[in-house]
Design a protein around this nucleic acid. Structure first.
Lengths: 216, 216
DNA sequence: TTAAGAATAGCACAATCGTGCTAAAGTAAT
DNA sequence: ATTACTTTAGCACGATTGTGCTATTCTTAA
């Protein structure tokens, strides 16, 4: 028995499957989850429709793998490197900066499956929505935790509501996608960045404090 | 010749057509533009598929009319009443307040076709995208003009970039939809409102840097 | 080379889509 | 009631969807 290397990709089929998932991800990013059709994916990778089907099991399974794959890439590009920055506002800024940057270079051209997916599945139940929501919630939990750490480090105001700030940052990113992909304004990334700076400043600790009554 | 009254609804067919458009709008708001299918609309209004078809001409024509109809309702509920408030920050606040309120009571339950449509058609060309974009741009122009008037009235800072503020407000609303419909957090409207207050405060004119805040 | 097995293609299937065409039903004026 | 006309239903069409089943092609071990 050849006992191929179990580390990376075992059989060839898994390699073509990875190709399939990649192509499906592109398709999805461009035109949404519903655009992942067996025929479209087959055309894109140069296989037959049943060839694709036999590899992925079902359409929904393929969609689910696309979500997983996107998750991995996003976290590897945004989360992982930002974790090398020390806890506090610096790390939060790093997250947002990398998030914007990734949105600018990849997702403005390709689209973000979470943004598109969220509005596509907001009223539809099912395992795909659950997967999407799980991913979103997981990422928001990361951002939230980072905010709490920044509060602990006294980098931002003690009375900060983490969930509120999470939502405001998330809203900014949604606005960036909208501005870039629908309105097609090239200044979207810059606007988003300056909006974040304006936003985070309102949460900053008051150096020359404004005489707040509820301080203590 | 009967010369029916040309003012409101002439023939009966136009009345059923209005019913059709209304049903299609509901469908669209719930599940997106793509959910407007002749069969689904027919079921909803109790007609046959070809009955619906003969009334609307084509599927795309129906979708276009849905967009128009939504436009009318939105402007009647948000734009028109806000115009009764005098120019300046007060009017801008009125717009945003009504916008949030409408989003809370109707669109959180039903969905907003512009939000869903924008992310559905961000990569798709065609007359439907053009219509959607025209509506969005028109509304943004209204908001922008109101902002400029508020600057002129010295209600907000003179160096305000109107387009930037438009985007930030729009992003907030996108965030609200996401929070309410996808994440399904009931506090979405409140969060959005307080986010707006925080945001607009950063654009406020610095009078005597103390308690110059909101209150309009 | 051959034999075994994995990977892909081909084809059929029931649904569903939008859209014509034709017949039936409904409505209103004479 | 009859006529003229509008409004709706019925049916067929070609495409396209996801998914089984079967046959073919390719890969690899002996």
């Amino acid at each position: 028995m050849p006992q191929k290397n179990l580390q990376p990709k075992r059989t060839k089929s898994e390699l073509t499957k990875a190709t399939i998932v990649g192509a499906a991800l592109d398709l999805c990013a461009e035109q949404g989850m519903e655009a992942i059709t067996l025929q479209a994916v087959a055309d894109r990778v140069g296989l037959s429709k049943s060839g694709v089907f036999s590899r992925v099991g079902s359409r929904e399974a393929l969609q689910a793998e696309v979500i997983d794959e996107y998750d991995r890439r996003f976290l590897a590009e945004v989360f992982v490197p930002a974790m090398q920055v020390p806890k506090g506002l610096g790390r939060l800024n790093a997250i947002v900066r990398r998030w914007i940057e990734r949105a600018r270079v990849v997702e403005v051209n390709n689209g973000c499956i979470y943004v598109a997916g969220a509005f596509e599945f907001d009223d539809r139940e099912g395992p795909l929505r659950d997967l999407l929501l799980r991913g979103v919630q997981g990422w928001r939990a990361v951002v939230r935790r980072t905010i709490v750490q920044a509060v602990d480090a006294k980098d931002i105001a003690a009375n900060t509501d983490p969930d509120q700030l999470v939502m405001e940052i998330y809203a900014l990113m949604l606005g960036m996608y909208h501005e870039a992909r629908f309105v097609r304004d090239a200044r979207a990334a810059d606007r988003t960045h300056s909006a974040y700076e304006r936003l985070i400043q309102t949460y900053a600790v008051r150096t020359v404090k404004k005489n707040s009554v509820i301080s203590h």
